[in-house]
Structure formats: C-alpha cells, structure tokens
Deep mutational scan, measured.
Amino acid sequence: MAEAPPRRLGLGPPPGDAPRAELVALTAVQSEQGEAGGGGSPRRLGLLGSPLPPGAPLPGPGSGSGSACGQRSSAAHKRYRRLQNWVYNVLERPRGWAFVYHVFIFLLVFSCLVLSVLSTIQEHQELANECLLILEFVMIVVFGLEYIVRVWSAGCCCRYRGWQGRFRFARKPFCVIDFIVFVASVAVIAAGTQGNIFATSALRSMRFLQILRMVRMDRRGGTWKLLGSVVYAHSKELITAWYIGFLVLIFASFLVYLAEKDANSDFSSYADSLWWGTITLTTIGYGDKTPHTWLGRVLAAGFALLGISFFALPAGILGSGFALKVQEQHRQKHFEKRRMPAANLIQAAWRLYSTDMSRAYLTATWYYYDSILPSFRELALLFEHVQRARNGGLRPLEVRRAPVPDGAPSRYPPVATCHRPGSTSFCPGESSRMGIKDRIRMGSSQRRTGPSKQHLAPPTMPTSPSSEQVGEATSPTKVQKSWSFNDRTRFRASLRLKPRTSAEDAPSEEVA
C-alpha cells in the first residue's frame, strides 16, 4: 500500500521540484479525499487562508506561464504608474523644462484676455472677434484635454484613487474654476456660431469669465498662502490700524457733515460726507466734493493729517511682513540645501571615528588635552595620597570615625582645627580638600554678606603664586578674593596644593 505523501509545513519547496517556489498556508490543510486516503489533490490556500480556484496559477517567480503573465502585467503596471506620476508632476508640480508648457498656457490665456479687451473697442471689434473665435476653439481643445489628463493623473495619489477620489480631486477650487471656464468657452462658441440675436450679448458677457483663467496660473496657491501667512502673522497690528482709521473716518465725516450741510449742497446727507471722507483719507482725492466753510476746511485738514497716518499703516505693516517672510523662506531654502550635506558629513565622520582606533588626527579633542595637561583624576589621586601619608595610611573619614581611648597616647600629631565659614567644625583632613566650587561659593557668600568690609582692609600687593609662602596660607580663606572669576591669580592660587600645619609646630611643606 502506497504511503501518503508527508504533510509539508512552511514555505519550503517540495523535494524533486527545486526551481518551484510555492506559497503554502501556515497550517497544512488537505482535502477530505486526501485525509481519507483517496487520490485527491490537496486544496490550495492563499496567504489569508482563502481557498484558491482550481485553475488559478500559483503565485511565485517560477510558476510557469502564469508567472510570465504576472511579470508582464507587473511591468506594465509599473510603467503605467510611472507615467501617471510623471504627468501629475508636470501639471501640478512643474520643475525644470516642465515650465515651458505652463508658459505656453499663460501666453494663450493672456492673448485671449487681450483680444477680449480689444473686442470692446469699436475700431478693432470685428478683427478681434474673428481672432478670438479661432483662439477659443484652440483653448477649448487644449483645456478640455488638460482637464481630463489632470483628473486621470491624480490617481497617482492615494487620496485621489478610484471614482470617489477623482470626484474629490474635481471638487478642488482650481478644478472648479477650470470647469466653469470650459463651460463658458463652449457656451460662447455655441452662441457665436448660431448667428442669432443673442450671440452678441452672450459673447460680450461670458467672454470675461475667461479672466478666471489668470487665476489658474498659480494652481498651488503659493501667492495666496504667502499673503495669508503675512496677514495672520500681523493680524493684531492690522486690526488696530484699521480700527483707529475707521473711527477717524466716521468722526471726521460726521463733523464735516454738521459744518457743511447748510452751506454746501455736496454734503446734503451723511452718506455724501462718508464718501468724501473715504476718498480723502485714502489719499485718492477725486475733487467732486470739497468743503466751502472755514470750519469745514479746518476739520477736514486736521482729520486728514490724523487719519492718513492710520490708513497708511497697513501698507507699511504688510510690506515689512512680506520682507520678513521672504527672508525666512530664503533662510529655509539654505537650511534645506545644507541639511543633507551636513548629515552626510556627520555620518562619514562617525564611520571614520568608529573604524580608526588610533585617531591620531583628533588634535583638538579632550583626549588630546588630557594627555598634555594633568587630568583631574590625577589631581584627586594626588590629594588622596598626600592625605593618607599624613594620616598614617588612613583616609580622612576613617580618621574622624576612629575612637580614641581616654589616657591613651595619640598616634597622630595634634592638628589645628579649622572652621569653614557658615558651618560647624569639620575634620581637619578636609581643609585642604576644598575644591574650586567651594572656594568660589565661599567668595560669593563673603561678597553678599559684607562687601563694604573688603574695601576697608589695607590693599594687598598682588604677587605671583611662585613667590607666595606656603606656610602662610594655612586656610583657603587666605586666598585673595576677587569680584570676578576671570582673575588668573585667584584661579592659579585655588589650584595650588595647600599643606596642613599642626598647632604646635607648623613646618612648611611643599608638595611638588
């Protein structure tokens, strides 16, 4: 009796068929016929556990003709996506030579605008209408194809895939403007070719909807975003200037109206006075309405000098805001240009540092100066060695804690006790272990408590650290204090090793 083939788990290929790579489910599931010992083939499952149809090819690079078809379809799909992405970037994010197409579109729109203006002049109306009709045909074809291509290429973005995504893309403001202008152009052409009475009025009214094509030149909205950011950044200043200017306008108009309503027919109503105030304070000055009385002229002159300053403030605020924003954008561009080279330089330096163990090129690091100058660790070890030599091999803490019996001779020589300023008595072995921070803190506390006492003391002649007598400086308080830590004499004296002298005989010792 033939044995059933062993159940295979995992992703390994079956024996005897090495080139074939078959994806098997996580659990080997066989058909009921196979479990019962029949000759049925096992049921194939996909990666998600769903059964595959009987005629479906197995996924994998070596699955025969199905694999070749899959490779061809995958390559075609990649080319399709690449083309779609390229078209989308050309239309929505132009760079380099892609601006040539947008310059061509701008020339078409500008020519249409010029011809629309010439069509309103009686001398050039006939020729402009003929040229404009031909140009409209060209623009309908160009913009119609462009609109379709834009909607198709938007599928390269995830949020615009599918018919719902394309509809979302078509609802964008600039796409809506394109659609309105396209419909208006078709209506103008249809009305112009019919030759009816309505054609002339339709051409004159709907052609100027094509002015909206100038708005579509900035599809990404960079200028509007820049203007919005400047207004938002200086909103408080703008609101303040406009508010005060509006108050000056209504008060000036009302007072001039009261002064001129009886003697001047131009100011017969408050609305006429508001019109005069707006034209005057905005420095336009049509001259259609002028005050005639001396009181009205004085009020107009005073409020004009006051109001023009507030009406001119928004222009200066926006101008300075634009300058600052442009400078910030230039700085951001320079930062973006330098970020990648800086990151590459840091990575290269780290690779060199991690692979080169000698690091002989590091001549400006802490390790280099640590090898030249005595390190703080060596100074600490030197302090501890000196203290243990004086205390008979014991550390200062051990000397303080060691009990001394009554009447027993002390094995240590008597030492002079010292007192730290602002604290109780402490171990004499710690007097010379006072660090730089303690010395600086002690000097600052003395300056806070009594700076007036220092200038009363007789001035001391500054001497070099080499000429100081070591026996005289029994305490860190003898170090000359200065008002600034930048004094080199104080810094050098604080680094010197001060020996400890006994109370009975204080021989001067120098520590090399």
Rank of each mutant, 00 (worst) to 15 (best):
S268F: 02
T200A: 06
R168H: 15
P341T: 08
V215A: 08
R81P: 13
P42L: 05
L132R: 12
N344Y: 02
L313Q: 02
G319S: 15
E136K: 03
A21G: 03
A343T: 05
E237D: 01
C69Y: 14
R220L: 03
L11R: 09
V142A: 03
Q164R: 07
Y243S: 01
L313R: 01
L295V: 04
M139K: 02
G221S: 03
R159L: 15
L45P: 07
C156G: 15
Q164E: 05
L108P: 06
F137V: 03
F267S: 01
Q33E: 13
P51S: 13
S111N: 04
G245A: 15
F251I: 11
A300P: 00
S31I: 05
P5R: 11
S273P: 00
S41C: 05
Q327E: 13
L226M: 02
L23I: 03
Y243F: 03
I180N: 00
I317F: 08
L133F: 04
F182S: 11
A263V: 09
Q33L: 09
I148F: 13
C69F: 08
Q30R: 06
C157S: 15
V149G: 03
V103A: 07
L26P: 04
S65W: 10
P15S: 13
G155R: 01
R82P: 11
V256A: 00
P42R: 04
V298G: 02
K172Q: 08
S119T: 04
T290K: 02
S65L: 09
A190V: 12
K325N: 00
I180V: 08
F137C: 10
I121S: 06
V231L: 15
F169I: 01
C156Y: 15
L23P: 13
L58H: 08
L226V: 00
Y232F: 05
S31N: 09
H330N: 03
Q30P: 04
Y232C: 11
Q327L: 01
L255V: 11
I189M: 10
Y101F: 07
P341R: 03
Y80S: 12
K333E: 06
G165S: 00
P6S: 08
R81L: 15
M206V: 04
R166G: 03
A259D: 00
I121T: 09
L145W: 11
I197M: 05
N264D: 03
G222C: 02
L26H: 15
V149I: 05
H334R: 00
L238R: 01
A342P: 01
A323G: 12
L313M: 07
F179Y: 01
V151I: 12
A190T: 09
A271V: 03
G316S: 01
W86G: 05
V109G: 02
Q194L: 12
H102L: 02
Y257D: 01
L324R: 00
Y80N: 03
I177T: 03
I244T: 02
K289M: 11
P6Q: 12
D262N: 10
T290R: 02
E136G: 15
D218H: 02
N129K: 07
K337N: 00
F251V: 01
L209R: 02
P15T: 15
A68P: 06
R150G: 01
Q194R: 03
L203R: 02
Y88D: 01
K236Q: 09
N129T: 09
L48Q: 10
P53T: 09
K325Q: 03
S269F: 00
V138A: 06
V176L: 09
C175R: 08
L295Q: 00
L135M: 10
G296R: 01
R82H: 08
F310L: 06
S201Y: 07
L281V: 01
A187D: 00
A300V: 02
K289R: 02
I197N: 02
G96R: 15
N89H: 11
Q332K: 07
G55D: 15
V117G: 12
L52Q: 09
L249H: 00
I239M: 05
S185W: 02
Q71K: 08
R168C: 15
A263P: 00
A343P: 01
S201A: 12
L23Q: 13
L52M: 14
P61T: 10
Y243N: 02
H124R: 06
R95P: 02
S41F: 01
A2T: 04
F311S: 00
R79C: 06
A343D: 01
K337E: 02
I284N: 01
L133P: 07
K172N: 15
H334N: 00
L203P: 07
R81G: 13
E336Q: 02
F267L: 01
N89S: 13
T282S: 03
R220C: 14
S265P: 12
L91Q: 02
V230E: 00
S320P: 02
Q347K: 10
F303S: 03
R216P: 03
S205N: 09
V138L: 13
I134F: 12
G46C: 04
H234D: 01
S63Y: 11
R79S: 11
S235I: 02
F106V: 10
L247P: 01
I189F: 04
R159C: 13
W97C: 15
P19T: 04
V100D: 01
S67F: 14
F254C: 01
I308L: 03
Q33K: 13
G319A: 03
A76E: 12
K236M: 02
G39S: 11
A25S: 05
L133H: 06
I177F: 12
K337T: 01
R81S: 14
I177N: 06
T283N: 00
Q194K: 13
A300G: 14
S116A: 07
V231D: 00
T223I: 11
G39D: 05
P341A: 03
V326D: 10
S253A: 03
E237V: 00
S67T: 08
L212P: 03
S273T: 02
S65A: 10
S265F: 02
V141E: 03
L313P: 00
G62V: 10
A28T: 06
S119P: 07
K333T: 01
V138G: 12
G228D: 02
H102P: 05
A259P: 01
I308V: 12
I346T: 00
L281W: 01
K236R: 13
Y286H: 00
V141G: 15
L113R: 12
F110Y: 08
P42T: 12
G321S: 00
K333M: 00
I244V: 02
L345P: 00
G38W: 03
Q71E: 11
A75D: 13
F110L: 03
I189N: 03
V138M: 10
F303V: 01
E146V: 00
S229P: 00
E22Q: 03
A21E: 03
Q122E: 08
A68T: 11
G34V: 03
D218A: 03
A25E: 08
A301V: 15
A202T: 03
T223P: 15
F198L: 05
Q327H: 01
A18G: 10
A252S: 03
A128P: 09
L52R: 11
T120S: 12
L11V: 05
F267C: 00
V90L: 03
D262V: 01
G66R: 09
V186E: 00
R216G: 11
V90A: 15
A241S: 12
P5T: 07
C175F: 04
A241T: 05
Q194E: 06
V188G: 09
G192A: 00
I239L: 04
M1I: 03
G49S: 03
K289N: 01
G287A: 01
E32A: 06
W152L: 02
W152G: 01
I177M: 04
S185P: 03
R8S: 07
L26F: 06
E123Q: 11
I284T: 00
R82S: 06
E22D: 08
F311C: 00
E3D: 07
E260D: 01
G34C: 13
V181L: 13
R7G: 04
W163R: 03
L127P: 06
S119F: 11
K261N: 06
